[in-house]
Design a protein around this nucleic acid. Structure first.
Lengths: 197, 197
DNA sequence: GGTCCCATGTAAGGTGTTACATGATTCT
DNA sequence: AGAATCATGTAACACCTTACATGGGACC
């Protein structure tokens, strides 16, 4: 019984509340669910079938009015046990291929003037994410106060991950702003060289 | 002519110096090449063939003594043009499925005492990476001084990426240490609750 | 009349990993 | 004697993405 990360991602959500495949996809698309990656709905359905085959989840069909029927999945005691085991298991380091950093690695080949809009655009995207995460964190802190770190509910999980989201985006943005300042200096220098030479 | 990210990663290295498939794999395994992901050598060979088919690289067989022959690839003018175009093209946001953060999301299901070794081990791994990146950065700064940000050589690319490596690992570590402190408080509280109740 | 949301799935194709095949030299 | 390094590749498999299939209701 091998379970891919997506399987655990699904169990992680079903451990909180029963959901349909469509619900799971919606949950994973939320900005504060950044760590799930963008899972395609077409991949979630077969993964749910597999989890059901393994008896880690059970399903019931819910008939709806004016909407298609939905298949709602509930985590089983075995499933809960499985995720509890997985949560405290060792995690290998995640090494990701980053398009943006490979571009930075080759930035010596580019013109600073041309690279700047690209960097500014990227910074803008990350700024947007940061704002969303910060809003979510502020909401949580207002609601739960200092107690949040001691809660034994799902809010504790949300708190840990949203904190990471905020600090990740802050770090990324400050690196981007540092790089943009360098590119501006390079562009200015090149421009002066052009006009004075 | 579609080129996957691995193709650009390879061009990014060949833009600096001619290399064999084996050399490329070795370069990508270096700690400061973290942003390439761990590319398998078995995937690099067919990708190189494809780049050659597209005439973005050329190859020659080098006969060696006491070692197998090697096929050394050189970037072509078209290849250089292609990566220069790519470097300043827009980059979609990278959303990665993170095993560790999915575990954090479900950490409310776990015992703090059991989760602590897992978090400490993870922090240790990241600490090691940070040390390696910092050593590399220090070396660079010592060698090139303040000029480094204005260089129009490959060292500029290395500088940008290693700076990101350092700040990423610093951020990750400080989040991990914050989480560890919380887990310690939870463990202590649970322990007191057990003995006093 | 067109697009989006709800809802579940299949099929095809692309990407990436692990295992296999081969074999000499160097290090422990 | 065994493992690691050098060196290139193929084959099988696992995982993920994109496109296709279906269809009612709500909104513009």
């Amino acid at each position: 019984m091998y379970i891919p990360t997506l399987g655990y991602a699904i169990l992680s959500l079903l451990a909180r509340t029963p959901l349909s495949g469509y619900d799971i996809a919606r949950e994973m698309k939320r900005p504060t669910s950044f760590f799930f990656g963008h899972a395609q709905i077409s991949q979630i359905y077969p993964e749910l079938s597999r989890l059901e085959e393994y008896e880690l989840v059970t399903s019931i069909i819910i008939e709806q009015q004016g909407k298609p029927d939905k298949k709602v999945y509930t985590i089983s005691p075995t499933g809960l046990q499985e995720i509890q085991r997985w949560v405290v298991s060792p995690t290998p380091l995640l090494e990701v291929r980053s398009d943006f950093l490979i571009k930075a690695h080759s930035l010596w080949l580019a013109d600073a003037e041309e690279a700047l809009p690209h960097f500014r655009e990227h910074a803008r995207y990350h700024q947007e994410h940061l704002v969303a995460y910060e809003a979510n964190l502020a909401e949580m802190e207002e609601r739960w106060g200092a107690n949040i770190a001691l809660l034994h509910t799902q809010e504790f999980g949300d708190y840990l991950t949203v904190k990471r989201g905020v600090s990740y985006e802050q770090e990324y943005l400050s690196w981007l702003e540092w790089a943009i300042a360098i590119l501006e200096a390079r562009a200015k220098r090149q421009c002066e060289g052009d006009t004075s030479g």
